[in-house]
Write a protein that binds this DNA or RNA. Structure first.
Length: 553
RNA sequence: GGCCCCAUGGUCAAUCGGUUAAGACGCGACCCUCUCAAGGUCGAAUGACUGGUUCGAUUCCAGUUGGGGUCACCA
């Protein structure tokens, strides 16, 4: 009588490796007490999702803070959805955020002793473990066609029983080894299913590192572990890989909670110690009053590339995500005067339990803070890098006149309370247009927003008098005194108090006088510090602009 | 539908049974000020509902409701 050994040999004739061999090949990691081994294990199906950045940041931080290891594994078992090159893209995007793996798959080849780190290259490992499972009677070939499965499901629905391949509905579960061998020899296509010993009426418990104890129905379905294409399903690959890669904590999205009993079932069947699980809440979005997961298809902000292209500073996005992960991060940033997430004492237990709505306002806030706090040289480098990739206009300005752009970025920066007007590098180009003569000419080709209550001959006089008398290269106070004097001689108030006391005695207020210069120079009634602008523009440019505008009036 | 997770202002949220229920973003007002941004001060705004347990519940328990997830040879 043929038995499961014969079946296993027939199924995997070429497999000689055993589980013991694998245990020896991947020894326990030599790490200090409490060190966590975590991983980010995406499928190469596109660009980096904002939720993935969040999860990977958490995984990375847990490993780093515990003195452990963070690795990157590519889960490319779904050949239909795999997009060529997206694994490498994912790594590049992660790298941009400083999330670099200690070991794992890289475009140049694997790094680390627990590989391969690409699931499609681990077939021999999966097959060895599955062969053993078949031998032990804990896995078996299933010959159902998709139509058979569909039929089973339909009958279950009709009878209002739970759908799935389990118990009496698991058609091929109790075939004898002999029957199985017969069908295989007859050429019937098969997949391998895990044979569950679970009882649906019982509960399995596990402790989630974030949520605490979770109790779920025991798994009793015989899930597919090896697909007809010879690749494992996620369920099996997770158990097998994370065991041999010696992962200690699985950080994954909360959508995995319901399938955890399947994984625990398999760990038990294999006699392996399961890792800790930390199910991370999803980042949500409000859509017509309903919360839903950030969706790659519907939401631009679901793609990390969206933020990169718009020029959000990486540190700002990270800081925002960290504030969602641990809400005490904000207090910490205030106390420590830094937004550097790598220095923050992250605690996974403090993660909130429900998914946060993605908050653009708050992201903008963090990014403004981060940009304002970045020293000018560093900022200029980051802006240059951004411009090179995403802002042609800015890039050419930087190439032809880098120092000028740098000076503009430095306006009101080097002080206790720096300006905070850029949330993203993409905001820069539109707001600094007026500094460049070609753009300024376009601006002044349109009517300028001078105050209508002030006669244009006065405006012209103010402009011309400034050309003559306004000092350059002096302190701001001295410069402004001079402006006041010029204005005063034309009938503007030299103090706002005087003006308020008797407005009709003046052509306009102190502000009105300054505004004339601002409008002529920038084309707008609003601008950063006028003195700094004038110093950056330089005497020649200022003289030219004021004269041109005066002559037009 | 079964099962699971979650529930404090518009958003992110603190509180380990007793608090005037923190703080941050956003919003509003005022102050500062040559405009804007920044900064400062102040303000509006929160415990889903119903029962229990308790001297006392936002906090513990149950149910209801609501939201989310999951039930593939996808991950």
């Amino acid at each position: 009588m043929p038995d499961n050994n014969d079946l296993a040999e027939l199924l995997f004739p070429d497999v000689t490796m055993t589980i013991d061999d694998l245990e020896a090949r991947y020894p326990a990691r030599n790490l200090p007490e409490g060190a966590q081994v975590t991983r980010f294990a995406p499928s190469p199906t596109g660009f980096l999702h904002t939720g993935s950045l969040f999860t990977s940041m958490v995984s990375y931080t847990v490993a780093k803070r515990s003195g452990g290891v963070y690795f990157f594994r590519l889960e490319d078992t779904d050949t239909k959805r795999t997009i060529e090159g997206s694994g490498d893209l994912l790594i590049r995007e992660l790298h941009q955020f400083g999330i670099d793996a200690d070991e794992g798959y890289t475009p140049e080849g694997d790094k680390g002793a627990y590989g391969p780190y690409k699931q499609s290259e681990r077939k021999d490992i999966y097959r060895a473990v599955i062969k053993e499972l078949v031998r032990r009677g804990r896995a078996y070939p299933d010959f159902c066609t998709p139509e058979d499965l569909d039929k089973i499901r339909k009958s279950q629905e009709a009878n209002k029983v739970l759908p799935g391949y389990y118990g009496v509905y698991a058609r091929d579960r109790n075939l004898s080894a002999e029957e199985r061998i017969e069908r295989i020899n007859a050429g019937t296509p098969w997949v391998i299913r895990f044979k569950s010993n679970g009882d649906h009426d019982r509960k399995t418990k596990f402790v989630d590192a974030i949520r605490g104890e979770i109790e779920l129905q025991d798994n009793d379905t015989d899930v597919v572990i090896l697909k007809s294409d010879g690749l494992p399903t996620y369920h099996f690959a997770h158990v097998c890989d994370d065991h041999f890669m010696r992962t200690t904590m699985i950080t994954r999205g909360e959508e995995w909670i319901p399938s955890t009993p399947i994984h625990l079932d398999m760990f038990r069947a294999l006699g392996w110690k399961p890792p800790k699980y930390a199910h991370i809440p999803s980042i949500m979005k409000l859509d017509h009053g309903n919360k839903r997961k950030l969706s790659k298809r519907k939401d631009a902000e679901a793609a990390v590339s969206y933020f990169i292209e718009a020029g959000y500073p990486e540190g700002g996005l990270l800081a925002y995500l960290m504030s969602i992960a641990n809400s005490n991060f904000e207090e910490w940033t205030m106390a420590n005067k830094t937004y550097d997430v790598s220095r923050f004492p992250f605690n996974i237990k403090k993660m909130s339990l429900d998914g946060a709505l993605f908050d653009m306002d708050k992201l903008n806030f963090f990014c403004k803070e981060v940009i304002a706090a970045t020293p000018i040289d560093e900022l200029f480098a980051a802006v240059s890098k951004y411009a090179k990739a995403h802002d042609e206009d800015l890039c050419s300005r930087i190439t032809t006149n880098g120092d000028y752009v740098k000076a503009i970025l430095n306006i009101e920066k080097d002080r206790k309370n720096p300006r905070k007007d850029y949330a993203k590098y993409g905001d820069i180009t539109p707001s600094i247009r007026f500094f460049f003569d070609d753009e300024w000419e376009k601006i002044v080709a349109n009517p300028l927003p001078f105050k209508e209550t002030i006669p244009s001959d006065i405006v012209a006089k103010m402009l011309l008098a400034s050309v003559e008398k306004m000092p350059f290269g002096v302190e701001e106070n001295d410069w402004f005194s001079a402006v006041k004097e010029i204005g005063g001689s034309l009938g503007f108030a030299v103090s706002n108090k005087d003006y308020k006391a008797n407005p009709s005695a003046f052509v306009g207020s102190l502000s009105d006088g300054a505004e004339i210069l601002r409008v002529a120079l920038t084309g707008s009634t609003q601008s950063p510090n006028l003195h700094e602008i004038i110093e950056i523009l330089g005497k020649e440019r200022v003289t030219k602009r004021l004269t041109i505008v005066a002559n037009k009036l």
